[in-house]
Write a protein that binds this DNA or RNA. Structure first.
Length: 270
DNA sequence: CGCCAGGGTCTCG
DNA sequence: CGAGACCATGGC
């Protein structure tokens, strides 16, 4: 039995929840984009994944159809905000992203709205990637490392440009092997990622969650920061205190809970 | 048009 | 360790 025959997913929620930024929503409701360098067209049919172009196995892995959603939901915290987020986001999956693409994209994400992260990502792809029928591939670290701060600024990166350039150089030279890092325990992996220019604790946790399958990782951005304070009945705290609170209260799939809370907070603010 | 955004880094106490 | 200043850009 194939996973696509039985496992539910909400593509709209998954592709609009600020994990990936390059997919295009077509007029017929389908989505087109690239999984790595492979053009793919996917749609949601009766709540299941329908792959009409590209590799089925590739899509099943990328959209993480093997994540046991019902088991994850059973571990959700019982507080009202988490419960409401769950009802709103049922079917949203944490995608398995290519590591470099994820790392590079989140280096550009600091103090940026989702819409602008998307526009920077598309600019970088168009300037440095290879054209395909569903958009441009994400440029390899070697390509970005050989570019220039000015060329990256031209893609709208602003002060983030030197960080992306420097990290691309480190990865391109092989000083850091993103695939080899997958063998590390989460704390050591976090420590390694944070050493890269433009990568702090928040960005590192995004990469842990979206590219290294650490489903307990909790990136704390301004939205989740507000959510955590609300959960603590208005009681604030240092970043370290809030991170500790999240670890203790959001359960073994804290990263999933965080993603649902993030999406709920964003849509309910409009 | 002013506010704000999936923050990181450096400095100073 | 913790708080503050500074950093560019564009959607809304």
């Amino acid at each position: 039995m194939r996973l696509t025959d039985s496992v539910p997913i909400s593509l709209d929620l998954t592709l609009r929840s600020g994990q990936v930024f390059h997919w295009e929503h077509q007029a017929d409701g389908s989505w087109t984009g690239l999984i790595g360098d492979t053009p793919v067209r996917v749609a949601e049919k009766n709540g299941l994944l329908d792959v009409s172009r590209g590799s089925l196995a590739l899509a099943e892995n990328y959209f993480a159809l093997d994540h046991p959603l019902e088991e994850i939901y059973a571990e959700f915290p019982r507080d009202p905000m988490s419960a409401e987020a769950l009802e709103l986001c049922r079917g949203l999956r944490i995608i398995r992203q290519p590591r470099w693409e994820c790392l590079a994209t989140f280096i550009t994400s600091s103090m940026k709205q989702v819409a602008h992260i998307r526009s920077m990502s598309l600019s970088l792809r168009k300037a440095f990637g290879r054209p395909t029928e569903y958009g441009y591939t994400y440029p390899l670290p070697e390509i970005l490392a050989a570019s220039s701060e000015q060329a990256l600024r031209a893609c709208g990166l602003g002060y983030r440009a030197p960080n992306l350039l420097a990290t691309a150089g480190i990865v391109a030279r092989g000083n850091v092997d993103l695939d080899a890092l997958a063998g590390l325990e989460t704390p050591a992996l976090l420590e390694a990622l944070v050493k890269l220019p433009g990568v702090g604790v928040k960005v590192a946790n995004c990469v842990l969650l979206f590219a290294y399958e650490r489903l307990d990782a909790v990136p704390i951005d301004v939205w989740i920061h507000r959510v955590l304070i609300a959960m603590r009945r208005g009681r604030g705290g240092t970043p370290a205190q809030l991170a500790r609170y999240a670890r203790k209260n959001l359960g073994p799939y804290a990263g999933y809970v965080q993603q649902y809370l993030f999406h709920r907070a964003r849509v309910s603010s409009k």
